[in-house]
Design a protein around this nucleic acid. Structure first.
Lengths: 209, 209
DNA sequence: CCTACCGATCGGTAGG
DNA sequence: CCTACCGATCGGTAGG
C-alpha cells in the first residue's frame, strides 16, 4: 500500500501519480526539452486526452519539479553513501565518482533534465533546487578538502573551479553515454578517476620526442 | 566597407544584419534560452516592432544558427592557432585549454547558447553544426593522441570518454565563470591543466593520515 | 521600419 | 478520464 493509497479516503486527495506520466515526461523532456514539449505531446505518449493529465498533476511545472528534485536526490543519496567510509580521501573520491556514473548510467534521460533544465522552473522551485544542487556539489568539495587536509591530495589553486569542472565533465556524460556499448559505468568512472588522481602525464623518462 | 555593403546594389540583397539584433539575441537566448524567448521579447530589446525584425533576418532559427555557428568557429580558430606549434604535446594541450578559457571568458553568453542550445535547430542546421562540433572535439583528440604516440602522455583507457569529460568540464565554466572575480581565464585554465597533467594526488610520503 | 493581422498552438479549466 | 473550450501568445506576413 502506497502513501497515496493510505490517504485515499481523506478529502480532495489527488490520486497516485501514474508512473507512465512521469516516465513519458522524462523521456520527452530529455529528448526534446521542457519548453518545446507540449502537454498535448505528453498526453499522446501517455494515451489520454490533454485535459485528463490535470487529474494527476497540478501543472506542467510541477511535473518538471518532481523530475528534477527526484533526479538530484538520486545523486545526493548514492554519492553520500559511497563516500561515507573510513577510507582515504582519494579512495572516497573515486567511490563518489563511481557512484555518480552508476546513477547516470541508470537514469541518463532524467539526468539531462535534472542538470540541464532546472532553469525553466519558476523562482520558488528554482531556489529550492539550488539548495539541493549546492548539497550535491558540497559532497565532492568536502572529500577534496579532507584529502588536502590529510595530505593525500595536494592543495590546488582554484579548487572550487576545478571541482566544478569535474562535476561538469561527469554530468556531460549524460549527453554521450550509451549503455549499449561495452563500457561499464565503473570502467569509465575509474578512467576518469585515474586521470584526476594521477594525471595524463606519462612516468618520466620514456618520451620518444 | 563590409561584405554586405559591397554587394548592396545586387538584387534582393538583405541589408547588413545590425549588431544590436545579434547582441540582444545572444543575451536573451543565453539568459532565458531560445524557445522561451519570443520575437516580441527580442524586438523590445532591440527597440523596433516585432515584424520589423524580419527585414533583417529570415527566421528565428536562422538567428540561432548564426550565433551557434559563429560561436563554435570562435573556438575552432582560437584553439587551432594555439596548438599549431612545435611544442611538446603536454604544452600544446595546456595552450589549447588556455585558448578555450580565453574565448569562453570573452563570449560567455554566446558559449552557453553555442554548446547548450544547438539542439533547438532543425535537422539540416543541426547536422551542419555537428560537423563543426566534431572538428572542435578532434582538436583535443589529436593533441592527446600525439602526446600518447610520442610518449609524453600515458595511454589512457577510454580516451574518448576522458576527453569528452574534459570538454564538458571546460564548457561548464560558461555557467559559473564571472569576469568580475580576480580569477583570470589563464589562471583557471592553468589550474585545470595542472590537474589534468599531474593529477590531484600529493607527492608521495607527506600524508598526515 | 510600422500597422495590422494570420492561423496555429500553448497551458489550463468547466462540467460532466 | 472525456468533450469542449478559454484567453494568451507564438512565428511570421501583407502592404505600405
Amino acid at each position: 500500500m502506497t502513501v497515496a493509497e493510505e490517504t485515499g479516503n481523506s478529502p480532495r486527495t489527488r490520486p497516485v501519480l501514474p508512473d507512465v506520466i512521469v516516465r513519458e515526461a522524462i523521456r520527452l523532456f530529455g529528448e526534446k526539452s521542457y519548453p518545446v514539449v507540449g502537454m498535448r505531446d505528453l498526453s499522446k505518449a501517455v494515451g489520454v486526452q490533454p485535459g485528463s493529465l490535470y487529474a494527476h498533476i497540478s501543472s506542467k511545472e510541477a511535473l518538471l519539479m518532481l523530475i528534477v528534485e527526484q533526479g538530484i536526490t538520486n545523486y545526493i543519496e548514492a554519492i553520500s553513501a559511497a563516500i561515507a567510509t573510513d577510507d582515504r580521501a582519494d579512495v572516497r573520491l573515486r567511490a563518489g565518482i563511481r557512484a555518480h556514473m552508476r546513477v547516470l548510467a541508470g537514469t541518463t534521460e532524467q539526468t539531462k533534465v535534472t542538470f540541464g533544465q532546472w532553469h525553466y522552473l519558476g523562482p520558488e522551485n528554482r531556489s529550492r533546487v539550488l539548495v539541493l544542487r549546492q548539497q550535491y556539489e558540497d559532497l565532492f568539495l568536502t572529500v577534496a578538502q579532507d584529502g588536502i587536509r590529510s595530505g593525500v591530495l595536494r592543495p590546488v589553486p582554484h579548487l572550487k573551479a576545478t571541482l566544478l569542472g569535474i562535476i561538469g565533465g561527469l554530468n556531460f556524460a549524460a549527453e554521450w553515454y550509451s549503455p549499449t556499448k561495452s563500457d561499464s559505468p565503473e570502467g569509465i568512472a575509474d578512467a576518469i578517476a585515474d586521470v584526476l588522481l594521477y594525471g595524463l602525464t606519462a612516468p618520466a623518462g620514456n618520451h620518444s620526442a
